[in-house]
C-alpha cells in the first residue's frame, strides 16, 4: 500500500513538472493550475475509495484525476488539446472527466461543484446505494454561498458525501487571514450539524485515516463530513503567477517545502525498511519514463476533427 501511495504521489509530481515545461513551450494553453505540494491528499483520499464511489473536484484537478486512475496519456493529451484526451480536447486542464472511473470533473467556478457533490450523494441515497461521493475544493470556496447551501442540505438530508477542503492557505493571492472572519473551518461543520476535522495533510497516513473514518460514516450512516486538509501549494495559483515574492515570501515557501509530502513518505518508508535510495531512484525513473511516454503520446495525438466543434452540444 505504501508503495502504491508513493507511486501515485510521484507520478502526479513528475507529470506536473513536465506539464509546466509543456506550458512554457506553448503545448498547453489557457489556465493551468498545478497541484504540486498537495499530492498526499489525492493519493491518500482516493486510495480509500471503491471503484463505484464518486469523485468531483475543482479546476486544480490533474493530481486527483491521476490518483483516481486516469492514465497519464489521457490527461496529457487533454492538456495538449488533442483527440485522445479524456474529454477529446474539449475540456482542457480545468475540465477533466472520466465516466468509467466515476470522475465527475474538473469544474471551473469556485465552489459551484459543491452542490453537484451533494446531488450525487442525493442520487446514491435515492437509489438505496452505499457508495460515497468525495468532493474536493480549496479553502477559498468555503466563503461562497454554494458551499453553505450544499452543506446545509447535505447535513439536513444526511447525504453520503465527504467535503474536503484543501487548505493551501491562499485563494489565488489572498491569504486565508484576509478572507475568513473565522479561520477555524471546522467550526463551519458544526453549523451544519455534521462531523468536522482538521488535519496535517502533508502526512498521507493522516489523510487516509481521516478519509477512512469519513467514508465509513457516509457508507454506514449516511452522515456527511467536512474535512480540512492543511496543505501548501509549492507552485503559483496558476502558470501565470510567480511562485513567491508577491503574496508570500520565499522564506515561507522554502519552509513549507521542507515538509514535501513525498519526502515525508519516502523518509517514513526508508525508516521502516520498505524502500531504499536505489529502489526509489528506480521507481522515479519508471515514472519519468511513463510521463515521457504520455508527452510523446499527446504530441502525436491528432487535433480534434473540426466537425467536433458542433458535436455534443446537445444529445440528438
Amino acid at each position: 500500500m505504501n508503495r502504491a501511495l508513493l507511486r501515485s504521489m510521484l507520478l502526479q509530481r513528475r507529470f506536473e513538472e513536465r506539464s509546466a515545461e509543456a506550458y512554457a513551450l506553448g503545448k498547453i494553453g489557457g489556465f493551468c493550475h498545478l497541484y504540486i505540494g498537495q499530492e498526499a491528499i489525492s493519493a491518500g483520499a482516493l486510495s480509500v475509495l471503491r471503484p463505484d464511489d464518486y469523485v468531483v473536484t475543482a479546476y486544480r484537478d490533474h493530481g486527483l484525476a491521476l490518483a483516481r486512475g486516469m492514465t497519464a496519456r489521457a490527461v496529457m493529451a487533454e492538456l495538449f488539446g488533442r483527440r485522445d484526451g479524456c474529454a477529446g480536447g474539449k475540456g482542457g486542464s480545468m475540465h477533466l472527466f472520466d465516466s468509467k472511473l466515476n470522475f465527475l470533473g474538473g469544474h471551473g467556478i469556485v465552489g459551484a461543484h459543491i452542490p453537484l457533490a451533494a446531488g450525487v450523494a442525493f442520487a446514491i441515497k435515492y437509489r438505496g446505494g452505499d457508495q460515497v461521493c468525495l468532493c474536493f475544493f480549496g479553502e477559498a470556496a468555503v466563503n461562497i454561498g454554494a458551499f453553505h447551501e450544499a452543506l446545509n442540505m447535505a447535513g439536513l438530508w444526511k447525504l453520503p458525501a465527504v467535503f474536503i477542503i484543501e487548505n493551501n492557505r491562499y485563494g489565488m493571492g489572498t491569504a486565508v487571514s484576509r478572507a475568513m472572519a473565522n479561520e477555524d473551518v471546522t467550526v463551519r461543520a458544526a453549523t451544519y450539524n455534521i462531523p468536522g476535522e482538521s488535519l496535517d495533510a502533508q502526512d498521507v497516513f493522516a489523510v487516509r485515516d481521516a478519509i477512512s473514518r469519513a467514508v465509513e460514516r457516509a457508507r454506514s450512516n449516511k452522515t456527511p463530513t467536512l474535512l480540512e486538509m492543511r496543505t501548501y501549494r509549492f507552485m503559483g495559483h496558476s502558470m501565470s503567477d510567480a511562485v513567491s515574492g508577491t503574496y508570500r515570501t520565499k522564506a515561507e515557501l522554502e519552509e513549507e517545502m521542507r515538509r514535501d509530502p513525498i519526502i515525508l513518505l519516502k523518509t517514513h518508508m526508508t525508516g521502516a525498511g520498505e524502500i531504499d535510495d536505489d529502489a526509489y531512484a528506480k521507481l522515479d525513473d519508471e515514472i519519468k519514463a511513463e510521463v515521457q511516454d504520455s508527452w510523446d503520446f499527446a504530441d502525436a495525438s491528432p487535433e480534434p476533427e473540426l466537425e467536433e466543434l458542433y458535436a455534443n452540444v446537445v444529445v440528438e
Partner: peptide
Amino acid sequence: LGFAGIGVGAAMVG
C-alpha cells in the same frame, strides 16, 4: 443555487 446544483449532480449520475 444549492438545489439547482443538487439537480445537476443527480442528473450526472443518471
